[in-house]
């Protein structure tokens, strides 16, 4: 394999990892602080993707479409938290799984009713449609570069927010020791609502940005939910830093698995067998990573609670 190809795939992996991070950050905070498993997080991602695609298509600017998608999704999330999720904080995980699975079913039908059953073709903004010559022999899609930049920016922003602001301090206090935070007078209810909305905004942003390079379709939320859950489990539930590291790991392992494993297998195995095993190994890579991490560190890489 030539180094250019490897480099290109690694870049793709980092880009996918950053998008996973946007999803996982909200998921891990909601889980860490409110001890709530929200399967409908993927539905917010889907909402972001659909809204951005339609607004962009309707003639809006891409940036405008992304902003509208984020704002609208946050509004939906606000209602979701108020009507359902808030009542689940005190319940066990299973009740949360069941109720938010119910939300997924409703969300998928709602999207089908509004935008129809067939996938949307989200277009790349015209200005970013072409490639950029990264290296003499490596043209790289400009849009994917923007994705990388936005992902990194948000990660840095989130780091500053969580570690260097008052809101972040409250969030961290809630994540590491909720009874103590309540005792110290933190209005946990408000922190919850804020975190939920923040998570929704990040999920919608990820959905809106991923739209042009993936399929905007019903069920996309469920498909991305599993890798996002894998990320927060590897990273340690409740840890944003853990989610970041794990998201990059999963992004790289998943992309590398798909790009490098099939050719590697072809070079050592009979072609028919390699053709069978390649996709299987690539699909499994992420889960093997999680199983290995959990066997060595049962609470993930960066356990939020000591």
């Amino acid at each position: 394999m030539d180094p250019i190809f490897i480099f290109e795939q690694l870049l793709n992996g980092v880009g996918y990892g950053l998008m996973l991070f946007l999803l996982a950050a909200g998921l891990t905070l909601v889980f860490g602080i409110m001890d709530t498993m929200n399967l409908a997080h993927g539905s917010l991602y889907m909402a972001g993707a659909y809204i951005a695609a339609r607004v962009h298509e309707a003639g809006g600017s891409f940036v405008g479409a992304v902003l509208v998608a984020v704002a609208a999704t946050v509004l939906v999330a606000f209602l979701l938290e108020l009507l359902i999720v808030r009542k689940l904080y005190a319940r066990d995980h299973l009740a949360q799984v069941i109720a938010t699975f119910g939300v997924i079913l409703i969300a998928d039908d709602a999207v089908k009713a509004v935008w129809g059953p067939s996938p949307l073709m989200a277009t790349t903004p015209a200005a970013l449609a072409g490639p950029v010559q990264l290296l003499p022999e490596l043209p790289y899609p400009a849009y994917r570069l923007v994705l990388l930049a936005v992902g990194l920016l948000v990660a840095v922003g989130l780091y500053v927010l969580v570690n260097h602001t008052r809101v972040g301090m409250l969030v961290r206090a809630g994540a590491s020791n909720r009874p103590m935070a309540e005792f110290m007078g933190v209005r946990v209810g408000r922190v919850f609502s804020f975190v939920f909305a923040l998570g929704a905004a990040l999920a919608a942003l990820a959905g809106a940005l991923m739209g042009p390079i993936s399929a905007v379709q019903i069920g996309m939320g469920e498909a991305i939910l599993i890798p996002a859950l894998v990320v927060i489990v590897i990273g340690g539930i409740g840890s944003v830093r853990g989610a970041f590291v794990a998201a990059l790991l999963v992004g790289l392992v998943d992309t590398a698995g798909r790009a490098f494993l099939p050719p590697l297998l072809r070079s050592v195995l009979p072609p028919a067998l390699a053709a069978d095993l390649g996709p299987a190994f690539a699909g499994i890579a992420m889960y093997v990573l999680m199983a290995a991490v959990l066997i060595l560190k049962p609470a993930g890489l960066f356990p939020a609670r000591a």
């Binding site: 859950l229 499994i284 049962p298």
Partner: peptide
Amino acid sequence: RTRGVYFLMITLAFAQMLYYLAVS
């Protein structure tokens, strides 16, 4: 050996491995 959500996720992981095994 794991509990709670970690058990949920690791059983899911093994089922996904079986799924991809079947695909292959």
